[in-house]
């Protein structure tokens, strides 16, 4: 049986079903990410151990190491699945892009270590301002993103403003004698309802709004106006009854169960 030392060596191999697997590098990466717990608890090479290894690597490849938020790769995957969901359900979903204003000045004035503290702080503030179901990511540099599923258009501005205010009103302590305040600009766009768009175009639309917010003086929010095709639940149900009414077993009942005189009345 293989003995795992407290330090996984790069050359570490295990044997599973007669096959030799090189797991040293993977274990080193996971150990550095603070995943020794399961490595010590589980039996090396067992199915549970292998599953934990796969899970651990998935976690590493989807996270940003500095903030612990999702990274761009995972964020784009979330956008894709959200687009699919919006196309099916017609629920409104909002994409927010955040960029720290004049971040270069923070780095130049206080140093990169202080810059890292600011980035971590913003990531945490953003995460705290949204719901647990929302996906928050650091997209690179000083840019962050959030996808908010099932977010009505009337709600978008309020969420974005909550984030902006929370960041503006907080002092970040980078070192005992370093109090830094930063602001963010926010751009947002809703996924087009009932339409299979692409994550690329969605990002681009939100990015255009972010650019507008920057150009208009920073520390502000620009959201793309209301999604333009709204199909309510009521409309959907009435539409779908057309399909179900034509099923063989429903044929004998009324052909057009929803067609009645009240229909022409304005809602």
């Amino acid at each position: 049986m293989l003995q795992l030392s407290s330090f996984a060596r790069e050359a570490t191999v295990i044997t599973v079903g007669g096959h030799t697997l090189q797991v040293g590098l993977a274990l080193q990466l996971l150990e550095r990410a603070g995943q020794h717990d399961w490595m010590a608890r589980l039996e090396p090479g067992s199915p549970a151990w292998l599953q934990a290894l796969v899970d651990g690597l998935c976690m590493l490849s989807s996270r940003d190491p500095l903030t612990g938020l999702f990274n761009r790769r995972q964020f784009e995957a979330s956008l894709d699945s959200e687009i699919d969901r919006v196309a099916r359900t017609g629920e409104s979903a909002l994409l927010l892009l955040l960029d720290i204003d004049h971040f270069k000045r923070v780095n130049d004035t206080y140093g990169h270590a202080a810059g890292d503290v600011v980035i971590r702080h913003i990531g945490k503030a953003l995460q705290e301002c949204v719901r647990p179901m929302d996906t928050v990511a650091r997209l690179g540099g000083e840019e962050f993103g959030a996808v908010l599923p099932n977010c009505p258009a009337s709600f978008g501005q309020a969420v974005a403003d909550r984030v902006r205010q929370a960041i503006e009103s907080t002092m970040v302590t980078a070192a005992p004698d370093q109090q830094i305040t930063v602001t963010v600009s926010v751009g947002g766009a809703f996924a087009p309802l009932w339409v299979r768009s692409s994550s690329h175009l969605w990002m681009e639309r939100a990015d255009q709004q972010l650019y507008r917010a920057k150009a208009a003086g920073r520390n502000r929010i620009c959201l793309e106006s209301q999604p333009r095709s709204e199909v309510s639940n009521e409309e959907r149900e009435m539409l779908f009854s057309a399909v179900s009414a034509f099923m063989p077993d429903a044929m004998d009942s009324s052909m057009d169960p929803t067609l009645d005189a009240s229909m022409d009345a304005a809602p």
């Binding site: 309510s232 009435m238 057309a242 052909m255 057009d256 929803t258 022409d264 809602p267």
Partner: peptide, 22 residues
């Protein structure tokens, strides 16, 4: 899948439009 299905769908679509699109 059945004759008349298209006409039925069209009738229903028209009804939803009449009711909701002004």
């Amino acid at each position: 899948q059945r004759p008349g299905e298209g006409r039925h769908v069209a009738t229903q679509l028209q009804a939803v439009i009449q009711r909701f699109v002004h």
